[in-house]
Amino acid sequence: MKVIFLKDVKGKGKKGEIKNVADGYANNFLFKQGLAIEATPANLKALE
Score class of each variant (00 low, 15 high):
11 G>K: 06
18 I>C: 07
8 D>Q: 03
32 K>Q: 11
19 K>A: 12
31 F>V: 08
12 K>F: 14
30 L>S: 00
41 P>G: 09
45 K>E: 12
40 T>Q: 04
24 G>A: 14
42 A>V: 09
18 I>K: 04
28 N>A: 12
39 A>F: 10
17 E>M: 07
17 E>G: 02
20 N>G: 08
8 D>R: 06
21 V>S: 02
26 A>F: 14
31 F>T: 05
20 N>D: 13
28 N>Q: 12
11 G>Y: 07
11 G>D: 10
25 Y>D: 04
27 N>I: 15
22 A>I: 11
7 K>I: 10
39 A>H: 06
27 N>M: 13
7 K>C: 10
13 G>E: 04
11 G>L: 05
22 A>Q: 13
1 M>F: 07
36 A>P: 00
19 K>P: 01
38 E>L: 10
41 P>W: 10
33 Q>Y: 15
11 G>C: 09
43 N>D: 03
20 N>M: 14
38 E>I: 11
33 Q>A: 11
2 K>E: 10
17 E>C: 04
13 G>L: 02
25 Y>C: 04
35 L>F: 11
21 V>N: 01
32 K>G: 08
31 F>E: 03
3 V>F: 00
31 F>G: 02
18 I>Y: 01
24 G>Y: 11
2 K>S: 12
39 A>T: 02
8 D>L: 05
38 E>F: 05
25 Y>K: 04
22 A>N: 14
2 K>L: 15
36 A>L: 01
10 K>Y: 14
33 Q>V: 10
29 F>R: 05
22 A>H: 13
6 L>R: 01
43 N>M: 08
1 M>I: 15
4 I>G: 01
4 I>N: 02
2 K>D: 10
19 K>C: 07
45 K>H: 09
12 K>L: 15
23 D>H: 14
6 L>T: 06
39 A>S: 04
15 K>R: 12
46 A>I: 12
20 N>P: 08
13 G>F: 13
18 I>T: 06
2 K>R: 14
4 I>D: 02
18 I>Q: 06
20 N>L: 15
34 G>L: 07
16 G>Y: 10
44 L>F: 06
4 I>T: 02
19 K>E: 04
46 A>P: 07
33 Q>D: 08
43 N>W: 02
21 V>P: 00
32 K>N: 10
1 M>H: 03
30 L>N: 01
7 K>Q: 10
38 E>W: 06
45 K>T: 10
40 T>W: 01
7 K>M: 12
33 Q>F: 15
40 T>N: 08
9 V>C: 06
8 D>A: 07
34 G>V: 04
35 L>I: 07
30 L>Q: 01
8 D>F: 04
26 A>D: 07
42 A>L: 09
46 A>R: 12
14 K>F: 13
7 K>A: 12
44 L>V: 10
3 V>S: 00
9 V>F: 04
33 Q>R: 14
24 G>K: 12
5 F>P: 01
28 N>S: 12
27 N>A: 13
44 L>W: 03
41 P>R: 09
45 K>S: 12
42 A>I: 08
11 G>S: 06
34 G>W: 06
14 K>N: 10
37 I>F: 05
18 I>R: 00
8 D>H: 08
26 A>I: 05
3 V>R: 00
32 K>D: 09
45 K>P: 05
27 N>L: 15
16 G>L: 04
32 K>P: 15
46 A>Y: 12
34 G>Y: 08
10 K>C: 11
15 K>V: 09
33 Q>C: 14
47 L>E: 05
46 A>E: 12
28 N>R: 11
30 L>D: 02
8 D>P: 05
26 A>E: 07
2 K>H: 08
7 K>W: 08
4 I>F: 09
16 G>A: 04
23 D>C: 10
10 K>S: 05
3 V>E: 00
10 K>H: 13
21 V>E: 02
39 A>M: 06
30 L>H: 00
41 P>D: 14
37 I>G: 00
18 I>H: 03
15 K>C: 12
29 F>V: 15
10 K>R: 12
41 P>E: 14
10 K>Q: 12
46 A>S: 09
38 E>R: 09
